[in-house]
């Protein structure tokens, strides 16, 4: 029990200093888990992170569960994950309460009119940065365009998109492999 609490607190600590999740999280995990504690090796950490990327859900959450599970089994996975999200829940709840009242002030409204443009920049540049690693051939470009149109213009549910594209990817790469044989 004490060990689980320790795990919970350590991950809460990491969750509270980790901005933006994703790649920002790796150096922090490496320092705390590999260098300071020796709980796993750097290679293991990178493996977990890679799996976190290709399983559903938030990458940072997946990686936390993985490490917690490795250290203390299922309860460990749960404790690490709950720890990691606790600071988010507290910080966002406090901020949301403040902002709920603040957005009625004109000055805050104007500030957010600028911030929304910045959000556009962040989203566009995230898309551009991801392009190389996600889209490798013509089929990828095709899927991208079809999904973009279906989602932006027709508002089709993203769940349907994910399921269908996964099935398509499976079918196409399987067919290609049997062609080679």
């Amino acid at each position: 029990m004490k060990e689980l609490l320790k795990l919970y607190i350590l991950f809460a600590k990491m969750g509270s200093v980790c901005f933006g999740g994703g790649y920002a999280m790796l150096p922090i995990l490496e320092r705390e888990l590999v260098q300071n504690r020796g709980w796993c090796t750097k290679e293991e950490l990178i493996d977990y992170y890679a799996i976190g990327q290709c399983t559903p859900g938030v990458i940072a959450v997946n990686t936390s569960t993985f490490i917690g599970h490795k250290l203390k089994g299922i309860p460990g996975g749960i404790a690490a994950t709950l720890g990691f999200v606790t600071p988010s829940v507290i910080i966002i709840s406090v901020l949301a309460t403040i902002l709920e009242y603040a957005t009625s002030l004109p000055v805050v409204g104007y500030a957010f009119s600028g911030i929304r443009i910045c959000v556009c920049v962040l989203i566009v540049s995230a898309t551009v940065n991801l392009w190389k690693s996600a889209i490798k051939d013509k089929l990828g470009v095709g899927i991208f365009i079809v999904v973009f149109v279906l989602s932006a213009l027709l508002g089709i549910s993203p769940i349907i998109v994910v399921v269908l594209s996964g099935a398509l990817g499976y079918a196409v790469s399987r067919a290609r492999e049997s062609d080679k044989k």
């Binding site: 999904v147 932006a152 594209s165 990817g169 499976y170 399987r174």
Partner: peptide
């Protein structure tokens, strides 16, 4: 194989959200 299809789709979804 499954992710071969999902990765570009996931990009398309984010781009559409951006749009």
């Amino acid at each position: 194989r499954v992710f071969y299809g999902i990765r570009p789709a996931s990009m398309g979804l984010i781009a559409a959200a951006g749009f």
